[in-house]
Amino acid sequence: VTLFVALYDYEAITEDDLSFHKGEKFQILNSSEGDWWEARSLTTGETGYIPSNYVAPVD
């Protein structure tokens, strides 16, 4: 499982989006939707859509 880490803070715009803070880690559930990925936060356990350009793979 490839994990991703937030590079910036993000505040949800719609109820389907997931708010997060810089440094938060995610498991990507679906990355086939283009620039918005469905993800689960490993910090909160919540799922929602995140902007793919706000995250990077964890080394």
Results as ranks from 00 to 15, higher is better:
D9Q: 05
Y10D: 00
K22T: 08
L7A: 03
I28H: 01
I50G: 00
F4P: 00
T2M: 13
L18H: 02
D59N: 12
D59G: 12
P57G: 05
D9H: 06
D59F: 14
A12I: 01
T47E: 09
W36H: 08
L42R: 03
Y49S: 06
R40V: 10
Y49R: 15
E15Y: 09
D9T: 06
Y10V: 02
D59S: 13
K25A: 07
R40K: 12
Y8E: 08
Y10M: 04
I50C: 01
K25E: 08
P51G: 04
W37E: 01
H21L: 11
F20N: 00
G23P: 00
S32W: 10
W36Q: 07
E11K: 11
L18Y: 04
P51N: 09
T47M: 09
E24M: 06
N30C: 09
G23D: 06
P57D: 04
A6V: 01
T43W: 13
L42Y: 07
S41M: 06
Q27I: 15
T43D: 10
L7P: 01
D35S: 12
H21V: 13
G45W: 07
F26G: 00
E11D: 11
V58I: 13
T2S: 10
V1Y: 14
W36V: 08
P57E: 08
Y49C: 08
Y54F: 10
S52F: 08
E46L: 14
V1C: 15
A6L: 01
G45I: 02
S52N: 06
L42K: 04
N30L: 06
E15S: 13
R40H: 07
V55N: 01
F26H: 00
I28L: 06
T47I: 13
T14K: 14
I13R: 14
F4G: 04
L29Q: 05
E15C: 11
L42V: 09
G45F: 08
E46R: 15
F20Y: 01
E46Y: 10
D16C: 14
E46G: 08
Y54P: 00
G45K: 05
S19N: 06
G45V: 02
A56G: 09
Y8S: 07
G45L: 07
P57H: 06
F26V: 03
G45S: 05
T44G: 03
S19A: 06
D9Y: 04
I28E: 00
L3N: 05
T43M: 10
E24I: 02
G34T: 13
Y49I: 08
S41F: 03
S41H: 07
D17Q: 15
D16V: 14
S41E: 03
P51W: 08
S41D: 03
H21Q: 12
A39H: 00
W37P: 01
L29M: 08
D9N: 08
I13M: 14
Y10C: 04
E46A: 14
Y54V: 04
E11H: 11
E38V: 15
I28T: 02
N30P: 04
T14M: 12
I13E: 13
Q27E: 14
S41L: 07
I28M: 04
E46F: 11
Y49M: 14
G48M: 03
W37Q: 03
T44I: 02
E15K: 14
N53M: 10
S52W: 09
V55Y: 01
D59C: 12
L29N: 05
L42T: 07
E11L: 11
I13S: 12
V55M: 09
D17P: 02
Y8A: 09
E33S: 14
G48Q: 02
T47S: 09
G45T: 04
K25Y: 15
E46H: 12
V55D: 00
E38T: 12
Y49W: 14
D17E: 15
D59I: 12
H21E: 08
E33D: 15
W36N: 06
E46C: 12
K22N: 04
D35I: 12
F20E: 00
V55L: 11
T43S: 12
V5L: 06
E46Q: 15
L42Q: 07
Y54R: 07
L3H: 09
Y10H: 06
F26P: 00
D9R: 04
L3I: 15
L18I: 11
N30Y: 07
S19W: 03
E38P: 06
V1R: 08
W36L: 09
K22P: 03
G23L: 03
D35P: 11
F26Q: 00
D17Y: 15
E38Y: 15
L29Y: 06
S31G: 09
T14L: 11
Q27T: 10
T14V: 07
L7C: 07
A6N: 00
V58R: 04
E46P: 01
I50F: 01
D35Q: 12
D35T: 13
E24K: 01
S19F: 03
G45C: 09
V5N: 02
G23K: 02
A56R: 10
S32H: 11
H21T: 13
T47R: 10
N30R: 08
S41G: 03
A39W: 01
A6W: 01
P51S: 05
T43Q: 09
A56P: 01
G23S: 04
Y10A: 02
G23T: 02
K22A: 11
P51T: 02
S52P: 07
G34N: 11
N30S: 11
L18T: 02
D35H: 13
Y8C: 11
P51D: 05
L42D: 04
D17V: 15
F26E: 00
D9S: 09
E33K: 15
T2R: 08
E11P: 04
I50P: 00
T43V: 10
V5A: 05
H21A: 12
Y10L: 04
D59P: 12
S32L: 11
L29W: 06
S41W: 02
F20R: 00
A56T: 10
V55F: 09
T47N: 05
T2L: 12
D9G: 05
A12N: 06
G34L: 12
Y10Q: 02
G34H: 13
V58Q: 07
D59T: 12
E33T: 14
F20H: 01
D9P: 06
S52D: 02
E11I: 14
V58C: 10
W36F: 10
K22M: 08
I13L: 13
E33M: 15
Y49T: 07
E38W: 15
T2G: 11
Y10S: 02
V55W: 01
S52T: 07
V58D: 09
E24H: 07
D35V: 12
F20M: 09
G23F: 05
G45P: 01
L42H: 05
K25P: 05
D59A: 12
L29I: 11
N30Q: 08
V1N: 12
T44F: 03
L3W: 10
Y8Q: 08
E38N: 09
T2Q: 13
L7Q: 04
S19H: 06
E33L: 14
D9I: 02
L3P: 05
A39S: 03
D59Q: 13
D17L: 13
F4V: 11
T43E: 14
E11R: 09
E15R: 10
T43G: 06
L7I: 10
N53Q: 11
T2C: 13
T44Y: 03
T14E: 11
T43R: 14
G45M: 08
V58F: 12
V55K: 01
F26T: 00
L29D: 04
G34P: 15
G23Y: 05
E33H: 15
I50A: 01
S41T: 04
T14H: 15
S32R: 10
D16T: 15
G48Y: 02
E24F: 04
T43P: 02
L42P: 02
Y49L: 13
S41R: 14
P57Q: 08
N30D: 13
Y54S: 09
S31L: 10
I28Q: 01
T44K: 03
F20G: 00
E15A: 14
T43Y: 10
A6T: 02
I28G: 01
P51A: 04
E46N: 12
L7E: 04
T2H: 12
A12S: 11
L7W: 03
W37H: 03
I13T: 14
G48L: 02
A12H: 06
T14Y: 15
L42G: 02
L7M: 08
P51C: 08
F26K: 00
N53A: 14
D16F: 15
D35K: 10
G34V: 14
S32M: 12
L29F: 07
D59H: 13
K22Q: 09
L18F: 07
S19I: 02
W37I: 06
Y8N: 06
T43H: 13
L42I: 09
